[in-house]
Each structure stands twice: as C-alpha cells, then as structure tokens.
Nucleic acid binder design. Structure first.
Lengths: 230, 230
DNA sequence: CGCCCCGTTGAGGGAGCTCAAAACGAGTGG
DNA sequence: CCACTCGTTTTGAGCTCCCTCAACGGGGCG
C-alpha cells in the first residue's frame, strides 16, 4: 500500500516539459507553470484516490502514472496511463473519478485548482485550451470504448503499442514502464493473455522484445493494420 | 441507407425541453434556444457522419439518437444513446467522432457552432457550462470503460438498465426504443446475449417484460447490486 | 545463496459468440 | 377476417477465444 507522497521544496519556476507530440507549443501554460509545485513519487505511491476532493491538477514530468478504478470484488480497470507531458485530473468536476498511482518512480507538477480556475477566468485563451484538453480526452476515451467493446485480444495489444509509439519520441522503440498486469487491466485482458499476445506478435515478426519492458517495432504497417481502422 | 434529413420551417422560439434529471434548470440555455432550428428525422436517418466537419451541435427533443463508430470489417460500436434533453456533439473538436442516427422517429434542435461559440465568449457562465457538459460526458465514458473492460454480460445489462432508469422519468418502467442489436453494440455483446440476459433477469424476477421494448423493474436493489459498485 | 516478484508457457474449462430455427408482432393485400 | 410476408426477438446447440489454474524461469536484492 502506497504511503504519503513527498513534496520537494517548491522552485519558483517549474522545469519546462515537452508538449505532447501533436500539440503546438503551449504558451498558454507559461503562466500556469509559475503556480506549480514539483512532487516526486516512489513506485506504487498514490497521487490521489478515487473520491477525493479534486482540488489539484497535475502534469507528469518524468516516469508514468496509471489511473484506475476498482470494482467492489477487486476487479480493476486502468483507464489511462499518463506519460511525461500529459495532464491529469483536468476534467475532474468535484471529486476525482479514479485513483492515480505512480507506475515507476515519477515526478509531477501539481497545480492548485483555484489558481487554474482563476487563470481560466482571466485568460479566455487558456480557458478554451482547457476545454480542448477535455475534448481530446473524450475522443481518446471513445477510441478506447471501441477497443474494449469490439476488438480481439491481439488487436487491443496492437492498438496499445501503436498508441505508445505515437506518444513516445522514438519511431520504432517502445518503453513499457508498466507491468503486464497493468496492461491487461487497461485492455480488459488478463496478464497471461497480454504476455501470449506479445509473444505471438514476436513470433510473427511484427515486434521483437529487447527486454520485457522495451519493444522494438519491426513491421509498423502490419501492426497498424492489426490495430486497424477507424 | 438513410437519406437527407428534413428541416422544418424554423420557429423563432424552440420548444423548451425538460433538463436532464440531475441538472438544475438550464437558464444558461435560454439564449441558446433562440438560435436553434428544429429538425425531424425518420427512423434510421443520419444526423451527421463520422468525419464530417463539426459545425453544428444538437439537442434531442423527442425520440432517441444513437452515435456509433464502425470498424473496417463492419463491427460496430454504439458509443452512446441520446434521449430527450441530451446534447450531442458539444465535445467535437474539428470533425465529428462518430455517426449519429435516429433510433426511431426523432426531433432535435440544431445550433450552429458559430452562434454557440459566440455565446460562450460573451457569457462566461455559459462557457463554463459547456466545460461542465464535456466533463460529465467524460465521467460517463470512464464508467463505460469499466463496464466494457471488466463486467460480465449480465452486469453490463443491469448497468444499462439502471442508467436508463436514472435518465428516464418513471421510477420502475423503462422504454427501450433501440433494438437488441443496438444494445449489444453498445455493451460489447451480441444481440443474442442481450436477449438471453434479459430473459434471465426476468426468470430471476428482477424485471418483467411488458413488451419487447418496455421493461418493468421488479427489484431495483438487486439490479443495482448486479450493476454494482464503484 | 535463497527469496520474491514478474513474465512466460502449458492444459483445461467456461462465458459468450456463431449458426440455425422457431416464435412473435406489425403491416399488407386478398 | 384471415393468409402471407417481413423484421425482430427468443431459444437452442456447438464451438472458440480468452480466462483460470498451475508450473517453470529469470533477474534483483537481502
């Protein structure tokens, strides 16, 4: 069980962080960075819990964060993995909808909700940006609904890998900081099925496993075809 | 294949529509209604297609709309059903993310994106309301991810029914305007499994079938327990 | 070295899918 | 009013994909 998170002495200036691949440089966030605090988390530590009052937003600097929901009997679903540059919690209304935990040692910037909201009122451009972020999360969620509702195990795994390639900064090498169980809980599969799926993709020559947490993409086209349409 | 949609002579005043159960009266939308046009659709007609430029938003007045995505090989996923009072397309960024079709004969109000955006700039309260709507959709999507990722067939069906009770205006009677296939494509199941699931819930005494499109809830607590936690 | 966690691989079983047929309701025409 | 059709729902029987349970292997750490 994760314990308390550590707070670093807050620097006046938060280190800049590469914006996600598809986004234009985020000038809107210059002001935001000035109100952020850097927080570091050990592997497994929680950033916040499902149901907590949502009074902070976060941005990942290094490492990775998983957001998950638990059912009463222990079944778990990982709704999303957040990588460096990603924002967390911006769409929380009142309380957080899930628990956020560090997948590995991780550092994030923490913004108080008050200052973000104030900024949004003052600067309309920034407010619109927030709306855009929310809309993008929504479109990502739609994709995932199709994935979970209608794709086979192997198609889900391929989609997941393609997604990571697009978000990562290398074109043919994927880092998988999370465990097979995490991936399974994200894709609606068991860790055994994930493992078998990766082995099969390897035996078909679409990927190769550098080690269990680093994948080399051998045939991206075939992988995209598997991940498929729409 | 659905053909063109019919446009009514636009009334200066759009009929008021009951706001969704959980929302406070939507004063913010008074101004909005003045810029809307009523459109009627026959069963199966499309409101817009996946990929179309998103230059209109909609609100359902009567009937029901399903929004779906297709995979290349024809597999379909229904991301959401929209009932009277629900807004459609408010979170589209640039193009629509899915195709919207009338489940039955349906009427909707159509708002041009320009006037909505203008309204949002002029009136900050309204802008914030849009953000809230987007956030609510997002939280609904999260729930669906858990459903598709981790729930059994019967749990999915129970969750679906509970959701409809909460959105409907009767406490123990549910109208199902959509077909079993539609429901299956929404829940990540086949129509046979949906039908079997409903039959089983009936044989267990949790529901009874008035006719194939109207359900009476006999034991809501048990149904909620099945739909379950989180 | 020994322990533990994690990933891989194998064997068997089950929830839900596929294919098929029967039941039902609504509409249509005689 | 009945006969017929067509679309939808229900029910049945068999199969498949993925889950479950279990054993094995390797890397990190005390």
């Amino acid at each position: 069980m994760p314990d308390k998170l550590r707070l670093e002495a807050l620097p006046a200036r938060v280190p800049a962080c590469k914006p996600a691949a598809t986004k234009p440089p985020a000038d809107e966030f210059a002001a935001l960075d000035r109100v952020g605090t850097v927080v570091t988390l050990g592997r497994g530590q929680a950033l916040f819990y499902d149901g907590d009052a949502a009074d902070h937003y976060f941005k990942v600097l290094t490492g990775a964060v998983r957001c998950c929901k638990l059912l009463a009997d222990g079944r778990r679903h990982v709704s999303e993995f957040y990588l460096p540059g990603d924002f967390i919690g911006f769409h929380a209304v009142d309380t957080y909808l899930f628990t956020a935990e560090a997948v590995t040692d991780t550092s994030v910037v923490r913004y108080s909700r008050r200052s973000v909201d104030a900024l949004a009122s003052q600067e309309p451009r920034f407010g619109r940006r927030l709306l855009t972020i929310a809309c993008q999360s929504l479109s990502a969620a739609q994709q995932k609904l199709v994935l979970l509702g209608r794709k086979t195990a192997e198609e889900r795994i391929a989609s997941f890998l393609i997604d990571l390639i697009e978000r990562g900064d290398e074109s043919d090498r994927i880092a998988l900081p999370m465990s097979r169980t995490d991936i399974g809980d994200h894709l609606g599969l068991t860790m055994e099925t994930v493992s078998r799926g990766l082995s099969h993709l390897k035996s078909e020559g679409l990927i190769s496993l550098e080690d269990s947490h680093h994948i080399l993409v051998r045939d991206r086209d075939a992988l995209e075809e598997l991940a498929e349409a729409a």
